[in-house]
Nucleic acid binder design. Structure first.
Lengths: 114, 114
DNA sequence: GCTATTGTTCTCCATGTGGTGAAGTATTGG
DNA sequence: CCAATACTTCACCACATGGAGAACAATAGC
């Protein structure tokens, strides 16, 4: 199983910004054009475009240009893939607790012997 | 429920680095000292210390110094809190699909009327 | 009390990030 | 064709990040 994830660095990096998380939240309700997405923010389009690029490079969104309009869509599967990392961590904790259980068993045995 | 999260920016920022994710993975198996954690990496201690600081500032780990040894522990609840953001996103998708269902219902009604 | 160990702080440097504004490109509507 | 629209690219800037190395604590062991 290993680290099959589509490069987590850019994904978490992309999520580490409120503007980009807001974009993802908005796209969660359906596709939208660049200017629609940019409208709630006070920054200029060039700055906003960079955020879109970061999200696209991370694979979290897809974009398609028709005419002069670029439409963005959320790649929900990619987001879910990122989420998997957390599950992997929990699996590690589980291992740890299993080992704790083993330790407890060992201690019990020791007690019996005493 | 809103955005109760303990400032997601630093959390995701902290996760956007393989060294720091590896540290979290290691701490998932139990507490460890700074030099134990640093050992697998080729960088110097000062650089590594920065990673520890980033993780601690993000709230993902806790550290305690006893004598000259600093021991780090994973704050599993904080990691889980970060994970909640993904769940919130899925809730948004659910809303979206509910609206799709509504639309389908509307279309059905329209069909009935036609 | 010396000395090794463990961490910490400092300065420095290259690169990345997030923003600006000006100018350019490509459609679309009249 | 002309102008408005919707990006897009460019040059630039302030600041954050991740690394280096040197020097400085502060214990722990002998």
């Amino acid at each position: 199983m290993e680290n099959n994830s589509p490069r987590l660095d850019p994904v978490f990096q992309a999520l580490a910004d409120p503007t980009r998380r807001a974009v993802i939240g908005r796209l969660g309700q359906g596709p939208a054009t660049v200017s629609e997405l940019a409208e709630p923010f006070s920054m200029g389009l060039p700055a906003f475009l960079k955020h879109i690029t970061v999200l696209e490079d991370a694979g979290l969104i897809g974009t398609r240009k028709v005419g002069r309009v670029r439409t963005c869509t959320l790649r929900e599967d990619r987001l879910a893939a990122a989420e998997d990392w957390f599950q992997e961590q929990r699996d590690l904790w589980a291992t740890r607790y299993d080992q704790l259980d083993d330790l407890i068993e060992t201690l019990k045995d020791t007690d019996d012997e005493t």
